[in-house]
């Protein structure tokens, strides 16, 4: 399940917008300019089913997203979708992994408290007995230079 973001969860001054997410979901999101730096040495790992519903998260995912594990499990992965991310990036992601290939890119993720964090994400299809059964996403610390490139590029794709 995914809910509209609540002002009580947000830290700092925020802006408000409505995002149209995959699967016909509409969500009110509240977002701030506060960045949480990606922690050194950690990987954020999650698995989703074929519809993008989260089935597994690791501790780093919980810590960085600001949500509890219970809030994340069974929620669509788009719970992390930040309004500054162009939808074309996610279309490319899904087209790529649905074709059985891996996808890699730089993503600005939205936290429960309205803040954000940048990641270098790799998504691969999990193939069992020749069939795609789920997807695993592993996020690692991005280089600042790559993040700055994306900060210039992504607004042109919105």
């Amino acid at each position: 399940m995914i809910h509209d973001m609540k002002p009580g969860d947000v830290v700092g001054d925020y802006k408000e917008t409505i995002l149209d997410l995959y699967g016909g979901i509409s969500r009110v999101v509240l977002y701030t300019d506060i960045e949480t730096p990606y922690p050194d040495g950690k990987l954020i790992v999650s698995t989703t089913d074929k519809d993008g519903i989260i089935t597994h998260v690791n501790k780093a995912f919980v810590e960085m997203s600001g949500y509890t594990e219970d809030e994340l499990l069974d929620a669509p992965h788009s719970i992390l979708r930040h309004p500054d991310m162009p939808s074309v990036a996610f279309k490319d992601l899904w087209d790529t992994v649905n074709a059985g290939k891996h996808w890699q890119g730089y993503v600005k993720n939205l936290r429960k408290d309205g803040g954000f964090y940048w990641v270098k994400a790799t998504v691969i299809p999990n193939i069992r007995q020749g069939k795609v059964v789920s997807y695993t996403s592993v996020r690692r610390k991005p280089s600042r230079a790559k993040v700055e490139e994306c900060m210039k590029l992504y607004p042109t794709l919105l």
């Binding site: 790799t122 691969i124 999990n126 695993t136 996403s137 592993v138």
Partner: peptide, 11 residues
Amino acid sequence: FMIDLMDTLAI
């Protein structure tokens, strides 16, 4: 799962 994880890291 570990093999899939290693695959993502090798990319």
